[in-house]
Design a binder for these strands. Structure first.
Lengths: 256, 256
DNA sequence: TCACCCCAGTTGTCTAGACAACTGGGGTGA
DNA sequence: TCACCCCAGTTGTCTAGACAACTGGGGTGA
């Protein structure tokens, strides 16, 4: 706190400068888990900002899950570790890079076809409307991890098959070429056994345990832009989830 | 909007009265997906509240995932359905009730034992410290769904085994008797095959596909209070996840 | 001893403003 | 035609205050 001086000319909002500073101090161990952060009043006085600005900084830490507030008591550092590998919405590519593996993909097929019934429903398309369908084997380092079939509305990105190298990240191409940013995904996971095609592609014994994923991805407005079915091997792939922290999110701020 | 008159004497905050009203109008179809909600300015004028209060109402809808804001444009109703069965942190009991099944449990064993190494690590206990361990078969309607082993620090709820009926919800007992409210859980899921004890208890063939869950549950402060390992049958149990919506949460309010 | 009150400290809610930054559409002028 | 400017509408950030509601500890008085 003492060392921080705010840059009032900066494009970075004051509350976010304070947010970043507190976050750094928490990570450095200056503020320990379970211990109070400076109060709104104190931040307000020390840094000469209004209490609402100080409050917004603290609230944005709460919405990150780094801190929590208790009325009448203060705002405290959460004991929950953030750095664990929880699944955000991210492509296979990003997920593997985050785990320290080198991801790539082998293309099985890519084509424009009429949407299947389930894909049409998930993507809110008329029956028979066209989708781009890409089938790939997903590989981490040299280990085949899963087989994935992705469907995107053809309307959304007509020339995708020319612009997209299937060995790289689809999400990055969507984001960089088309400005389509996937921010949320709804997913159903089932446990099953590998069929013969899957066991051949993944080089695992037939009837090995596998995860079956069905995922619908959304952009910020909630519009569905991707429908994916995939099979991942159960012996090498784990899912890490964080549940909750939805309904108890009394947040006042936050930054993308 | 027109029909709403705020109760300024109420203990319910103004922003939350507005929040509830807008939510009702969205659910009723008065405001449709993709369409704008009233602007901060408009709410402020119509309901004679300050703009910050109107803003807090809209932001709390955003943090619920019901709406999203775009600078310079407005706040819009999200196209994402909320009502789907996503997994919050909830007990098996709550989950099954939400799905319309009648949950119950068959006790296999309950005892106070020294924590296993992994349980001690998850719960931040000293090696050898005691935990309450409860093993149950989880049943939906009359169908056995999974085998679950729960460990709780003995220190936390010494007389739990007297006060808890293992056929009912553990989370409810923790909440009602001890004031322990679980708000977040970190979970690892693996795909595997049922061993002989599991297949017997779940009445499924040996080597059927199953989910293997390892879960650590936390209270608001982040303190770990429960460590669970469980095996659920893959033929009857599906996981529904919602990913993302963490980093893009520019919220100003929210209510537990 | 112990129930109660009081008080300082804290977060929660709310007000009435201000300016910045961005969006989208309409109008202007070369 | 079309690049550009302007403007109304909107969200984002920020200020300087106010009172409510709650927490926890200390002191008072029966």
């Amino acid at each position: 706190m003492e060392s921080l001086s705010l840059d009032r000319q900066s494009a970075v909002p004051l509350y976010f400068q304070i947010h970043l500073h507190l976050l750094k101090e928490i990570r450095s161990g200056r503020f320990k888990a379970g211990k109070p952060l400076p109060s709104e009043e104190l931040i307000s006085k020390r840094l000469r900002v209004s209490r609402m600005t100080a409050r917004q900084a603290l609230k944005s830490l709460c919405s990150l899950g780094v801190a929590y507030s208790q009325r009448g008591k203060g705002t405290f550092v959460s004991e929950i570790k953030l750095e664990k590998n929880f699944r955000e919405v991210q492509s296979f590519t990003e997920e593997m890079e985050a785990r320290g593996s080198r991801p790539h993909s082998k293309l099985i097929s890519s084509e424009v076809v009429p949407a299947s019934e389930e894909a049409a429903e998930a993507l809110h398309l008329q029956p028979g409307e066209k989708v781009i369908r890409i089938r790939r084997v997903r590989v981490a380092d040299t280990l085949p991890m899963g087989v994935e079939t992705t469907c995107l509305p053809h309307e959304l990105c007509r020339d995708l098959l020319e612009k997209f190298d299937p060995r790289h990240s689809l999400y990055r191409t969507l984001s960089q070429v088309y400005g389509i940013h996937i921010v949320q995904a709804d997913e159903v996971v089932e446990a099953g056994l590998a069929d013969s095609e899957e066991s051949r592609l993944l080089r695992i014994p037939k009837r090995s345990p596998v995860f079956l994923f069905t995922r619908t991805s959304h952009i910020k407005s909630g519009k569905a832009v991707e429908y994916v079915k995939s099979t991942f091997r159960g012996d090498r792939y784990k899912i890490t989830n964080r549940l909750g922290q939805f309904s108890n999110d009394n947040s006042l701020g936050g930054k993308a």
